[in-house]
């Protein structure tokens, strides 16, 4: 369980508060207007933005003391998820060994992970030699190998076309189902939230609301959410 215990994030004049929790295995979409702090919230959980108050914990373990790499999570950024000078296989292998020292078994696991996301045989390519969708799949293959219980998506598929994005979200859903990971994904497309999440966190006006079931949220949106969605309450 991910607990945001009266979390306060301050950056210059910007403040974001969150006080709620997410149960293990939940799939949560984080929606809200741009600039509201969706990315900031995920980056705080990942350890890139310091908390000004409160406490973050996973299964009772305080995350504040942990470096980003030591936290029980994998994050996919908006871009720069791959090192362009390393091959796809090396990029995936970083999920097993950040020093890239691999034995035969590890190499087989890397190849299997690539195979699983539909990139079998492409391990020797560089990111610039594959499509945007294939690059996204590579990052997902690495997430698969890392086997962290929490998966954070900071709109990594935003640059892909609608069809590809849906395809990626389906792949994410499969991976999450296979690994039992808890998913937190930023999106500004309500369709994504309906498609891939069972809960929704709405971020606006300096507050990240507690997660509510997706159907409920869209069936009876709060006035602020309705304004954001452009539907009349």
């Amino acid at each position: 369980m991910l607990v945001c215990d009266d979390v306060v994030i301050r950056q210059d004049a910007f403040t974001l508060r969150a006080a709620w929790q997410v149960s293990a295995g939940d799939k949560v979409a984080v929606i809200g207007p741009s600039g509201a702090g969706k990315s900031t919230l995920l980056n705080a959980i990942a350890g890139f933005v310091p908390l000004s108050g409160g406490r973050l914990s996973w299964s009772g373990q305080d995350l504040g003391a942990l470096d980003p790499g030591a936290r029980p999570l994998t994050i996919l950024f908006q871009d720069q998820n791959l090192f362009p000078h390393l091959t796809l296989a090396q990029n995936v292998a970083l999920g097993l060994s950040p020093s890239l020292r691999l034995d035969r078994a590890s190499r087989e696991r890397v190849e299997a992970a690539l195979e699983r996301v539909g990139l079998g045989g492409l391990g020797a390519r560089r990111p610039a030699q594959v499509s945007g969708g294939q690059a996204s799949r590579t990052a997902l293959a690495r997430a698969l190998l890392r086997q962290r219980p929490l998966l954070l998506l900071d709109e990594p598929f935003a640059a892909l076309g609608p069809g590809l994005k849906t395809e990626m979200l389906s792949l994410v859903a499969e991976i999450v189902a296979e690994t039992g990971a808890t998913l937190l994904m930023v999106t500004h497309d309500p369709t994504d939230a309906r498609h891939a999440a069972d809960r929704v966190v709405f971020v606006d006006d300096g507050v990240a609301d507690p997660p509510r079931p997706t159907d409920e949220v869209f069936a009876a949106p709060s006035p602020r959410l309705a304004a954001y969605l452009g539907t009349r309450p």
């Binding site: 990942a46 350890g47 890139f48 980003p68 790499g69 030591a70 950024f77 720069q80 970083l94 950040p98």
Partner: peptide, 8 residues
């Protein structure tokens, strides 16, 4: 950030 998130 990517390197840090991978624990390099």
């Amino acid at each position: 950030r990517l390197a840090a998130s991978l624990g390099m």
